[in-house]
């Protein structure tokens, strides 16, 4: 389980997150929805031990990321595309990640197959399209066969076939008992895939709960989203 509790983050005088609290549960796909700049990436970066919170905690099965003994086997993550250096090949990138995570080398070939990049393993990442970069990022996330997946805007740049594919992959992961937390600013995508929804706007949680509960009283997720985030936007202006 991923537990975010009372998370706050300030950059100087600017408040990026204030008192963000929510959970992502095993067996569920949790959609983390909010406009650009709402604090989605900041929250995920703190959860993954990349940035420090000003206050509050972000725990994975009760431990901060930095204290996980085997992080890649516990949480697979993707932020901002592949995270691979342009001059590397996909295979080379995954190979050093596997080394760093103490994972067997055969996993590199397995995940390249799994994300549909088997034929592009020797291509330099600098020549990848956005969609291929997303697939490579996903391959890195899957490398350690982790129980939890934390993905920032995973459908960005994917073509319709790719979106359908990732939907199936994440659904299967959750159905097998895994935890999936994915951020997006695309409401239709989240509505298609999420069991639970967390809506963030202006660095605050506007709503959290099972999808149907959050949408309750509105015709669509889109209407619910704008109703929920309207107050925040006005406050900010």
């Amino acid at each position: 389980m991923l537990s975010i509790s009372g998370l706050s983050k300030r950059h100087g005088s600017r408040t990026v997150l204030s008192d963000v609290t929510f959970h992502a549960l095993p067996g569920r796909v949790t959609g983390f929805l909010g406009p650009n700049g709402a604090g989605k990436s900041s929250t995920l970066r703190i959860l993954l031990g990349l940035d420090r919170a000003t206050a509050g905690t972000a725990l994975i099965d009760g431990r901060p990321y930095r204290e996980l003994p085997d992080p890649l086997r516990t949480v697979g993550s993707m932020l901002d595309g592949s995270g691979a250096h342009r001059s590397r090949t996909a295979r080379n990138h995954l190979a050093w990640v596997a080394r760093a995570g103490g994972l067997p080398k055969r996993r590199v070939t397995e995940v390249l197959d799994q994300v549909g990049l088997a034929g592009s393993g020797r291509t330099r990442v600098g020549r990848f399209s956005l969609g291929m970069g997303q697939r490579l990022g996903l391959a890195a996330a899957l490398l350690g066969n982790p129980a939890a997946l934390v993905l920032d805007e995973p459908v960005n740049g994917l073509d319709p076939e790719g979106i359908r594919w990732i939907r199936g992959l994440l659904r299967a992961h959750a159905d097998a008992g895994g935890t999936v937390l994915l951020s997006s600013h695309l409401m239709s995508e989240v509505a298609e895939i999420a069991d639970d929804l967390v809506v963030i706007a202006g660095g605050r949680i506007a709503a959290a709960g099972p999808l149907d509960q959050v949408i309750a009283g509105h015709a669509t997720l889109e209407e619910a989203f704008f109703a929920l985030t309207a107050d925040r936007s006005e406050q900010r202006c």
């Binding site: 595309g81 592949s82 399209s129 970069g133 990022g137």
Partner: peptide, 10 residues
Amino acid sequence: DAGGGRQITA
């Protein structure tokens, strides 16, 4: 175009 990511994240 490729997500603007940096290797330090990985």
